[in-house]
Amino acid sequence: MTGGADHAVSEAAVVARGLSRAFGDFLAVDDVSFSVHRGEIFGFLGPNGAGKTTTIRMLTGLIEPTAGEGRVAGLDIRRERRAIKRTIGYMSQLFSLYGDLTVAENIRFFSRLYGVPRARRGERADWVVEMAGLTAQLDRRTETLPLGFKQRLALGCAVLHEPPILFLDEPTSGVDPGARRRFWDLIYALSEQGTTVFVTTHYMEEAEYCHRLALMNRGRLVALDTPSRLRAQLAQPVLEVVVDDPPRACEALHDTPGVVEAALFGRTLHVMVDDARAGTEAVRARLAAAGHTVHRLREVEPSLEDVFVARVRATGGAVVG
């Protein structure tokens, strides 16, 4: 993994300054500023409805911002939209290749639209097919492929013209962790070749793969840093609690002295406390009083989800979604 954050800021691949977009009265994106370095894998993390897709659509020239400005590869997102579309690769949230076209036909279609020179088309097509692992499926209708294959093919079609910047909007939603990991191997491969990757996700474990992360909630950017620094910035320790009935235990822990926040985390509870030792005692006492048997109670390294919850609370809001 290369440290994208070390690159010079002056060569930023994507810059957003005060970017906003309203739909009627609803402010989907509210005064968002950030910059993405060249070659970086930049993650946009947040629940559904946080404004991730709207941001990506503004940056890719699909919709116009209502306020603020932005540049992608040095091009203005308001005035140079067509040039941006030639420069970037984009994979939208929905699977959006032609299902009634075969794998080969989809590749041919998009390489023509992106203006891949005739001499390079065969080579690029071979590269995509091999990358996506679709050599045996060339003449299959795309709609008959499993979702993981479709997503890899869509990624391939988005980089046929070797764009320096790639935008991926929730590229792995709906597939199993295995397929998700295979997809991320491809993202790393592209990143190592120098491609800047801007990716949105609502999977926390996926966010860990990014060089830098922007946390978004209710249209606002609530934090922006590398995953490890985001975790390090979290002042309070986090306790992991294993009980038989996590939802009821979670309720029982509300307004326990010393407990900042209790949230469900998979089948366990994550409890943020002011002090690890005092908090452990307080949690144990409160749960015992409420009749819960505590199977495990220990301090763990905070997850990005804990960071997210803490950040949202610190900026005085609730998490949407």
């Binding site: 579309k85 929905l94 639209l113």
Partner: peptide, 14 residues
């Protein structure tokens, strides 16, 4: 309906 228009829109096609 199938979302392909979005993908088309993101390409340089006029």
């Amino acid at each position: 309906e199938r979302g392909t228009m979005e993908q088309l829109a993101a390409t340089p096609v006029h």
